[in-house]
Design a protein around this nucleic acid. Structure first.
Lengths: 198, 198
DNA sequence: CGCTTGGTTGATCGATCAATCAAGAGCCCC
DNA sequence: GGGGCTCTTGATTGATCGATCAACCAAGCG
Protein backbone atom coordinates (compact mmCIF):
# COMPACT_ATOMS: atom_id res chain seq x y z
CA UNK A 1 0.00 0.00 0.00
CA UNK A 2 2.75 2.38 0.93
CA UNK A 3 4.73 1.79 -2.25
CA UNK A 4 1.73 2.09 -4.54
CA UNK A 5 0.84 5.32 -2.77
CA UNK A 6 4.36 6.72 -2.99
CA UNK A 7 5.43 5.56 -6.45
CA UNK A 8 2.26 4.45 -8.14
CA UNK A 9 1.46 0.98 -9.41
CA UNK A 10 3.51 0.86 -12.58
CA UNK A 11 6.63 2.35 -11.08
CA UNK A 12 6.61 -0.04 -8.15
CA UNK A 13 8.50 -3.17 -9.06
CA UNK A 14 7.82 -6.52 -7.50
CA UNK A 15 11.39 -6.34 -6.25
CA UNK A 16 10.49 -3.14 -4.40
CA UNK A 17 7.62 -4.91 -2.70
CA UNK A 18 9.78 -7.90 -1.78
CA UNK A 19 12.45 -5.66 -0.29
CA UNK A 20 9.97 -3.60 1.71
CA UNK A 21 8.16 -6.70 2.95
CA UNK A 22 11.39 -8.63 3.54
CA UNK A 23 9.94 -11.53 1.63
CA UNK A 24 11.06 -13.72 -1.24
CA UNK A 25 9.43 -13.75 -4.60
CA UNK A 26 8.21 -17.31 -4.17
CA UNK A 27 6.36 -16.40 -1.00
CA UNK A 28 4.72 -13.43 -2.59
CA UNK A 29 3.64 -15.40 -5.64
CA UNK A 30 2.32 -18.13 -3.38
CA UNK A 31 -0.41 -15.75 -2.19
CA UNK A 32 -0.66 -13.37 -5.13
CA UNK A 33 -0.65 -15.09 -8.52
CA UNK A 34 0.45 -11.88 -10.22
CA UNK A 35 1.38 -8.30 -9.47
CA UNK A 36 -2.04 -7.43 -10.69
CA UNK A 37 -3.63 -9.23 -7.73
CA UNK A 38 -1.53 -7.11 -5.41
CA UNK A 39 -3.29 -4.06 -6.79
CA UNK A 40 -6.68 -5.68 -6.31
CA UNK A 41 -5.86 -6.49 -2.70
CA UNK A 42 -4.65 -2.96 -2.04
CA UNK A 43 -7.80 -1.46 -3.52
CA UNK A 44 -9.98 -3.82 -1.52
CA UNK A 45 -8.21 -2.86 1.65
CA UNK A 46 -8.53 0.82 0.89
CA UNK A 47 -12.23 0.33 0.47
CA UNK A 48 -12.62 -1.55 3.72
CA UNK A 49 -10.57 1.03 5.59
CA UNK A 50 -12.48 4.08 4.41
CA UNK A 51 -14.95 3.81 7.24
CA UNK A 52 -12.75 2.93 10.23
CA UNK A 53 -9.50 4.64 9.24
CA UNK A 54 -10.73 7.70 7.38
CA UNK A 55 -14.28 8.63 8.29
CA UNK A 56 -14.27 7.63 11.96
CA UNK A 57 -11.19 9.68 12.93
CA UNK A 58 -12.25 12.59 10.75
CA UNK A 59 -15.66 12.78 12.34
CA UNK A 60 -14.61 12.28 15.94
CA UNK A 61 -16.11 15.22 17.80
CA UNK A 62 -17.90 16.56 14.76
CA UNK A 63 -21.64 16.08 15.02
CA UNK A 64 -22.97 18.51 12.45
CA UNK A 65 -23.48 16.59 9.20
CA UNK A 66 -22.37 19.41 6.94
CA UNK A 67 -19.35 20.14 9.10
CA UNK A 68 -18.45 16.49 8.68
CA UNK A 69 -18.04 16.99 4.97
CA UNK A 70 -15.48 19.67 5.59
CA UNK A 71 -13.86 17.73 8.39
CA UNK A 72 -13.25 15.02 5.80
CA UNK A 73 -11.64 17.50 3.46
CA UNK A 74 -9.50 18.73 6.34
CA UNK A 75 -8.00 15.23 6.64
CA UNK A 76 -6.68 15.43 3.10
CA UNK A 77 -5.33 18.89 3.75
CA UNK A 78 -3.47 17.66 6.78
CA UNK A 79 -2.14 14.65 4.87
CA UNK A 80 -0.79 16.92 2.17
CA UNK A 81 0.91 19.20 4.68
CA UNK A 82 2.36 16.44 6.82
CA UNK A 83 3.87 14.61 3.87
CA UNK A 84 5.10 17.72 2.10
CA UNK A 85 2.55 17.24 -0.72
CA UNK A 86 3.84 13.72 -1.28
CA UNK A 87 0.75 11.70 -0.39
CA UNK A 88 -2.57 12.55 -1.95
CA UNK A 89 -5.68 10.49 -2.45
CA UNK A 90 -4.37 7.01 -3.24
CA UNK A 91 -7.50 5.98 -5.09
CA UNK A 92 -7.50 9.05 -7.29
CA UNK A 93 -3.87 8.57 -8.21
CA UNK A 94 -4.41 4.95 -9.16
CA UNK A 95 -7.60 5.81 -10.99
CA UNK A 96 -5.75 8.09 -13.38
CA UNK A 97 -2.69 5.87 -13.65
CA UNK A 98 -4.50 2.75 -14.74
CA UNK A 99 -5.40 3.24 -18.37
CA UNK A 100 -6.04 -0.36 -19.32
CA UNK A 101 -9.70 -1.19 -19.21
CA UNK A 102 -9.22 -3.97 -16.67
CA UNK A 103 -12.74 -4.61 -15.39
CA UNK A 104 -11.80 -5.87 -11.93
CA UNK A 105 -9.54 -2.93 -11.16
CA UNK A 106 -12.03 -0.42 -12.46
CA UNK A 107 -14.80 -1.98 -10.44
CA UNK A 108 -12.74 -1.65 -7.27
CA UNK A 109 -11.78 1.93 -8.01
CA UNK A 110 -15.43 2.70 -8.60
CA UNK A 111 -16.34 0.95 -5.35
CA UNK A 112 -13.89 3.15 -3.48
CA UNK A 113 -15.35 6.29 -4.97
CA UNK A 114 -18.82 4.98 -4.30
CA UNK A 115 -18.13 4.37 -0.62
CA UNK A 116 -16.52 7.77 -0.18
CA UNK A 117 -19.31 9.61 -1.94
CA UNK A 118 -21.83 7.43 -0.18
CA UNK A 119 -20.55 8.58 3.18
CA UNK A 120 -20.82 12.20 2.11
CA UNK A 121 -24.28 11.48 0.80
CA UNK A 122 -25.23 10.16 4.21
CA UNK A 123 -24.18 13.45 5.75
CA UNK A 124 -26.19 15.44 3.26
CA UNK A 125 -29.26 13.35 3.82
CA UNK A 126 -28.82 13.81 7.53
CA UNK A 127 -28.70 17.55 6.96
CA UNK A 128 -32.27 17.14 5.76
CA UNK A 129 -34.15 20.34 5.12
CA UNK A 130 -31.16 22.53 5.81
CA UNK A 131 -30.47 22.05 2.12
CA UNK A 132 -32.90 22.92 -0.67
CA UNK A 133 -35.01 20.11 -2.01
CA UNK A 134 -33.53 20.52 -5.46
CA UNK A 135 -30.03 19.94 -4.09
CA UNK A 136 -29.98 16.21 -4.75
CA UNK A 137 -27.67 14.57 -2.16
CA UNK A 138 -26.38 12.14 -4.75
CA UNK A 139 -25.39 14.89 -7.14
CA UNK A 140 -23.89 16.92 -4.34
CA UNK A 141 -21.82 14.03 -3.03
CA UNK A 142 -20.30 13.38 -6.45
CA UNK A 143 -19.60 17.08 -6.70
CA UNK A 144 -17.81 17.10 -3.35
CA UNK A 145 -15.69 14.14 -4.43
CA UNK A 146 -14.78 15.89 -7.67
CA UNK A 147 -13.73 18.99 -5.78
CA UNK A 148 -11.61 16.96 -3.37
CA UNK A 149 -9.81 15.03 -6.09
CA UNK A 150 -9.21 18.10 -8.19
CA UNK A 151 -8.03 20.08 -5.21
CA UNK A 152 -5.61 17.37 -4.10
CA UNK A 153 -4.29 17.07 -7.65
CA UNK A 154 -3.55 20.77 -7.85
CA UNK A 155 -2.03 20.89 -4.39
CA UNK A 156 0.38 18.08 -5.23
CA UNK A 157 1.30 19.62 -8.54
CA UNK A 158 1.90 23.10 -7.22
CA UNK A 159 3.26 21.88 -3.92
CA UNK A 160 1.06 24.52 -2.42
CA UNK A 161 -2.21 24.69 -0.57
CA UNK A 162 -3.52 27.67 -2.49
CA UNK A 163 -5.71 25.82 -4.97
CA UNK A 164 -6.81 23.35 -2.29
CA UNK A 165 -7.84 26.04 0.16
CA UNK A 166 -9.46 28.09 -2.58
CA UNK A 167 -11.51 25.12 -3.73
CA UNK A 168 -12.64 24.22 -0.22
CA UNK A 169 -13.51 27.85 0.44
CA UNK A 170 -15.65 28.03 -2.67
CA UNK A 171 -17.33 24.75 -1.76
CA UNK A 172 -18.02 26.16 1.68
CA UNK A 173 -19.48 29.25 0.09
CA UNK A 174 -21.72 27.08 -2.05
CA UNK A 175 -23.01 25.21 0.97
CA UNK A 176 -23.63 28.50 2.78
CA UNK A 177 -25.70 29.72 -0.11
CA UNK A 178 -27.55 26.40 -0.29
CA UNK A 179 -28.43 26.62 3.39
CA UNK A 180 -29.52 30.21 3.04
CA UNK A 181 -31.66 29.30 0.08
CA UNK A 182 -33.27 26.40 1.87
CA UNK A 183 -34.52 28.50 4.73
CA UNK A 184 -37.08 30.12 2.48
CA UNK A 185 -39.92 27.56 2.65
CA UNK A 186 -40.22 27.28 6.45
CA UNK A 187 -39.35 30.45 8.30
CA UNK A 188 -40.02 29.26 11.84
CA UNK A 189 -36.78 28.78 13.76
CA UNK A 190 -38.52 26.56 16.33
CA UNK A 191 -36.67 23.24 16.56
CA UNK A 192 -39.51 21.53 18.42
CA UNK A 193 -41.38 19.63 15.74
CA UNK A 194 -38.25 18.60 13.92
CA UNK A 195 -39.06 15.31 12.29
CA UNK A 196 -36.34 12.72 12.33
CA UNK A 197 -35.84 10.76 9.13
CA UNK A 198 -34.97 7.09 9.64
CA UNK B 1 1.43 12.90 -27.23
CA UNK B 2 -1.02 10.25 -28.28
CA UNK B 3 0.81 7.45 -26.52
CA UNK B 4 1.31 9.38 -23.30
CA UNK B 5 -2.37 10.26 -23.38
CA UNK B 6 -3.49 6.71 -24.06
CA UNK B 7 -1.07 4.71 -21.92
CA UNK B 8 0.50 7.24 -19.60
CA UNK B 9 4.16 8.14 -19.41
CA UNK B 10 5.55 5.18 -17.51
CA UNK B 11 3.67 2.56 -19.47
CA UNK B 12 4.77 3.98 -22.80
CA UNK B 13 8.08 2.44 -23.79
CA UNK B 14 10.56 4.17 -26.03
CA UNK B 15 10.03 1.27 -28.41
CA UNK B 16 6.34 2.21 -28.55
CA UNK B 17 7.26 5.74 -29.53
CA UNK B 18 9.72 4.53 -32.16
CA UNK B 19 7.16 2.21 -33.68
CA UNK B 20 4.44 4.85 -33.76
CA UNK B 21 6.79 7.47 -35.21
CA UNK B 22 8.40 5.01 -37.59
CA UNK B 23 11.80 6.16 -36.39
CA UNK B 24 14.93 4.50 -35.11
CA UNK B 25 16.23 4.86 -31.62
CA UNK B 26 19.29 6.74 -32.75
CA UNK B 27 17.19 9.38 -34.44
CA UNK B 28 15.01 9.86 -31.42
CA UNK B 29 17.94 10.18 -29.07
CA UNK B 30 19.55 12.64 -31.45
CA UNK B 31 16.83 15.16 -30.62
CA UNK B 32 15.74 13.99 -27.18
CA UNK B 33 18.63 13.13 -24.85
CA UNK B 34 16.36 10.96 -22.71
CA UNK B 35 12.77 9.75 -22.51
CA UNK B 36 12.33 12.35 -19.84
CA UNK B 37 12.82 15.14 -22.39
CA UNK B 38 10.06 13.64 -24.46
CA UNK B 39 7.70 14.27 -21.56
CA UNK B 40 8.92 17.84 -21.23
CA UNK B 41 8.31 18.47 -24.92
CA UNK B 42 4.83 17.00 -24.74
CA UNK B 43 3.92 19.14 -21.74
CA UNK B 44 5.26 22.26 -23.41
CA UNK B 45 3.21 21.55 -26.48
CA UNK B 46 0.10 20.95 -24.44
CA UNK B 47 0.60 24.30 -22.80
CA UNK B 48 1.06 26.12 -26.09
CA UNK B 49 -1.99 24.44 -27.58
CA UNK B 50 -4.40 25.27 -24.79
CA UNK B 51 -5.32 28.58 -26.34
CA UNK B 52 -5.58 27.74 -30.05
CA UNK B 53 -6.70 24.10 -29.87
CA UNK B 54 -8.83 24.07 -26.73
CA UNK B 55 -10.14 27.50 -25.83
CA UNK B 56 -10.64 28.92 -29.30
CA UNK B 57 -12.82 26.07 -30.62
CA UNK B 58 -14.67 25.79 -27.34
CA UNK B 59 -15.56 29.48 -27.31
CA UNK B 60 -16.46 29.82 -30.95
CA UNK B 61 -19.92 31.36 -30.97
CA UNK B 62 -20.07 31.71 -27.21
CA UNK B 63 -19.83 35.32 -26.15
CA UNK B 64 -21.11 35.24 -22.59
CA UNK B 65 -18.10 34.91 -20.28
CA UNK B 66 -19.80 32.61 -17.79
CA UNK B 67 -21.22 30.48 -20.57
CA UNK B 68 -17.67 30.14 -21.81
CA UNK B 69 -16.69 28.37 -18.63
CA UNK B 70 -19.33 25.77 -19.22
CA UNK B 71 -18.56 25.57 -22.91
CA UNK B 72 -15.05 24.59 -21.87
CA UNK B 73 -16.41 21.86 -19.63
CA UNK B 74 -18.56 20.66 -22.49
CA UNK B 75 -15.43 20.01 -24.55
CA UNK B 76 -14.21 17.52 -21.95
CA UNK B 77 -17.60 15.91 -21.83
CA UNK B 78 -17.58 15.46 -25.57
CA UNK B 79 -14.04 14.11 -25.50
CA UNK B 80 -15.06 11.51 -22.92
CA UNK B 81 -18.07 10.43 -24.93
CA UNK B 82 -16.32 10.31 -28.28
CA UNK B 83 -13.45 8.21 -26.99
CA UNK B 84 -15.58 5.92 -24.86
CA UNK B 85 -14.15 7.38 -21.64
CA UNK B 86 -10.65 6.60 -22.85
CA UNK B 87 -9.21 10.09 -23.14
CA UNK B 88 -9.49 12.49 -20.24
CA UNK B 89 -7.48 15.53 -19.31
CA UNK B 90 -3.92 14.63 -20.34
CA UNK B 91 -2.35 17.07 -17.91
CA UNK B 92 -4.33 15.78 -14.97
CA UNK B 93 -3.44 12.18 -15.75
CA UNK B 94 0.24 12.98 -15.99
CA UNK B 95 0.08 15.15 -12.87
CA UNK B 96 -1.07 12.22 -10.78
CA UNK B 97 1.17 9.69 -12.48
CA UNK B 98 4.43 11.51 -11.94
CA UNK B 99 5.33 11.00 -8.32
CA UNK B 100 9.01 11.90 -8.49
CA UNK B 101 9.61 15.46 -7.47
CA UNK B 102 11.22 16.36 -10.77
CA UNK B 103 11.24 20.15 -10.75
CA UNK B 104 11.10 20.70 -14.52
CA UNK B 105 8.15 18.37 -15.02
CA UNK B 106 6.26 19.78 -12.08
CA UNK B 107 6.84 23.30 -13.28
CA UNK B 108 5.38 22.45 -16.68
CA UNK B 109 2.40 20.69 -15.18
CA UNK B 110 1.80 23.73 -13.01
CA UNK B 111 2.14 26.00 -16.03
CA UNK B 112 -0.54 24.00 -17.83
CA UNK B 113 -2.90 24.29 -14.89
CA UNK B 114 -2.06 27.96 -14.59
CA UNK B 115 -2.88 28.71 -18.20
CA UNK B 116 -6.16 26.79 -18.02
CA UNK B 117 -7.25 28.42 -14.80
CA UNK B 118 -5.98 31.75 -16.08
CA UNK B 119 -8.31 31.53 -19.05
CA UNK B 120 -11.25 30.78 -16.78
CA UNK B 121 -10.17 33.63 -14.56
CA UNK B 122 -10.30 35.93 -17.57
CA UNK B 123 -13.90 34.92 -18.15
CA UNK B 124 -14.83 35.57 -14.56
CA UNK B 125 -13.19 38.97 -14.57
CA UNK B 126 -15.05 39.77 -17.74
CA UNK B 127 -18.28 38.80 -16.01
CA UNK B 128 -17.53 41.72 -13.75
CA UNK B 129 -20.29 42.68 -11.35
CA UNK B 130 -22.49 39.79 -12.36
CA UNK B 131 -20.61 37.96 -9.62
CA UNK B 132 -20.39 39.09 -6.00
CA UNK B 133 -17.34 41.06 -5.01
CA UNK B 134 -16.36 38.42 -2.47
CA UNK B 135 -16.25 35.77 -5.22
CA UNK B 136 -12.55 36.14 -5.98
CA UNK B 137 -11.99 35.21 -9.64
CA UNK B 138 -8.70 33.55 -8.79
CA UNK B 139 -10.29 31.31 -6.16
CA UNK B 140 -13.20 30.56 -8.44
CA UNK B 141 -10.98 29.60 -11.36
CA UNK B 142 -9.01 27.13 -9.25
CA UNK B 143 -12.32 25.76 -8.02
CA UNK B 144 -13.57 25.26 -11.57
CA UNK B 145 -10.36 23.45 -12.49
CA UNK B 146 -10.71 21.18 -9.48
CA UNK B 147 -14.27 20.33 -10.42
CA UNK B 148 -13.26 19.58 -14.00
CA UNK B 149 -10.39 17.32 -13.04
CA UNK B 150 -12.38 15.48 -10.41
CA UNK B 151 -15.33 15.10 -12.73
CA UNK B 152 -13.19 13.72 -15.55
CA UNK B 153 -11.52 11.32 -13.12
CA UNK B 154 -14.82 9.92 -11.97
CA UNK B 155 -16.22 9.71 -15.47
CA UNK B 156 -13.25 7.68 -16.65
CA UNK B 157 -13.37 5.41 -13.64
CA UNK B 158 -17.06 4.71 -13.79
CA UNK B 159 -17.16 4.83 -17.57
CA UNK B 160 -20.24 6.91 -17.09
CA UNK B 161 -21.21 10.53 -17.34
CA UNK B 162 -23.26 10.55 -14.15
CA UNK B 163 -20.65 12.05 -11.85
CA UNK B 164 -19.45 14.42 -14.55
CA UNK B 165 -22.89 15.75 -15.32
CA UNK B 166 -23.77 15.93 -11.65
CA UNK B 167 -20.63 17.94 -10.91
CA UNK B 168 -21.19 20.36 -13.77
CA UNK B 169 -24.84 20.74 -12.75
CA UNK B 170 -23.86 21.61 -9.21
CA UNK B 171 -21.25 24.05 -10.46
CA UNK B 172 -23.89 25.63 -12.65
CA UNK B 173 -26.17 25.90 -9.65
CA UNK B 174 -23.39 27.58 -7.71
CA UNK B 175 -22.87 30.16 -10.44
CA UNK B 176 -26.61 30.79 -10.62
CA UNK B 177 -26.68 31.49 -6.92
CA UNK B 178 -23.60 33.68 -7.19
CA UNK B 179 -25.24 35.73 -9.92
CA UNK B 180 -28.45 35.98 -7.95
CA UNK B 181 -26.52 37.10 -4.89
CA UNK B 182 -24.59 39.71 -6.81
CA UNK B 183 -27.68 41.49 -8.04
CA UNK B 184 -28.33 42.79 -4.54
CA UNK B 185 -26.04 45.87 -4.46
CA UNK B 186 -27.09 47.52 -7.73
CA UNK B 187 -30.68 46.85 -8.74
CA UNK B 188 -30.75 48.89 -11.91
CA UNK B 189 -30.69 46.66 -15.00
CA UNK B 190 -29.54 49.56 -17.18
CA UNK B 191 -26.32 48.56 -18.99
CA UNK B 192 -25.50 52.13 -19.94
CA UNK B 193 -22.84 53.23 -17.48
CA UNK B 194 -21.06 49.90 -17.57
CA UNK B 195 -17.43 50.70 -17.04
CA UNK B 196 -14.98 48.64 -19.04
CA UNK B 197 -11.94 47.41 -17.19
CA UNK B 198 -8.79 47.43 -19.33
C1' DC C 1 36.70 16.31 -55.63
C1' DG C 2 37.35 16.09 -50.48
C1' DC C 3 35.53 17.61 -46.29
C1' DT C 4 32.08 19.09 -42.87
C1' DT C 5 27.58 19.07 -40.91
C1' DG C 6 23.24 17.13 -39.49
C1' DG C 7 20.78 13.30 -39.33
C1' DT C 8 19.85 8.04 -39.71
C1' DT C 9 20.48 3.18 -39.05
C1' DG C 10 19.87 -0.87 -36.19
C1' DA C 11 22.54 -3.97 -33.57
C1' DT C 12 23.76 -4.10 -28.94
C1' DC C 13 24.44 -2.99 -24.02
C1' DG C 14 23.60 -3.92 -19.00
C1' DA C 15 19.86 -3.37 -15.97
C1' DT C 16 15.59 -4.47 -14.57
C1' DC C 17 11.13 -6.39 -15.26
C1' DA C 18 7.39 -9.91 -13.77
C1' DA C 19 7.13 -14.51 -13.08
C1' DT C 20 8.74 -19.55 -12.37
C1' DC C 21 10.36 -23.54 -10.18
C1' DA C 22 12.69 -27.30 -7.78
C1' DA C 23 14.06 -27.89 -3.38
C1' DG C 24 13.38 -27.65 1.30
C1' DA C 25 11.48 -26.04 6.01
C1' DG C 26 8.15 -26.21 9.60
C1' DC C 27 4.17 -28.21 11.38
C1' DC C 28 0.26 -31.31 12.36
C1' DC C 29 -1.88 -35.69 12.54
C1' DC C 30 -1.58 -40.52 12.40
C1' DG D 1 8.91 -41.84 12.56
C1' DG D 2 6.72 -40.90 8.46
C1' DG D 3 3.46 -38.99 5.14
C1' DG D 4 1.00 -34.69 3.83
C1' DC D 5 0.22 -30.09 3.92
C1' DT D 6 1.34 -25.06 3.76
C1' DC D 7 4.59 -21.92 3.07
C1' DT D 8 9.59 -20.27 2.13
C1' DT D 9 13.85 -20.03 -0.25
C1' DG D 10 16.46 -17.76 -3.89
C1' DA D 11 18.51 -18.79 -8.14
C1' DT D 12 16.89 -18.41 -12.68
C1' DT D 13 14.13 -17.41 -16.87
C1' DG D 14 13.13 -14.78 -21.05
C1' DA D 15 11.28 -10.51 -22.11
C1' DT D 16 11.61 -5.78 -22.10
C1' DC D 17 13.45 -1.57 -20.42
C1' DG D 18 16.08 3.01 -21.56
C1' DA D 19 20.13 4.23 -23.67
C1' DT D 20 24.53 3.86 -26.55
C1' DC D 21 27.36 3.38 -30.38
C1' DA D 22 30.12 2.89 -34.68
C1' DA D 23 28.96 3.06 -39.11
C1' DC D 24 26.59 5.19 -42.68
C1' DC D 25 24.20 8.64 -45.72
C1' DA D 26 23.08 12.96 -48.22
C1' DA D 27 23.26 17.74 -48.85
C1' DG D 28 26.20 21.93 -48.91
C1' DC D 29 30.50 24.18 -49.87
C1' DG D 30 34.78 25.74 -51.88
Amino acid sequence: MRLFLEKGYGSTSVADVLRAARANSGSLYHFFPAKHDLLLAVLERYRSEIEPRLLAPAWRGVADPIERVFALLRVYRRLLVETGFFYGCPVGSLALEIHEPDPAVRRLLAANFERWAGAVRGCLREAGDRLPVDADPRELSLFVLAVMEGAVMQARTHRSLEAFDASVRRLRDYFRRLEKGARRPRLRPAPAAKEKIR
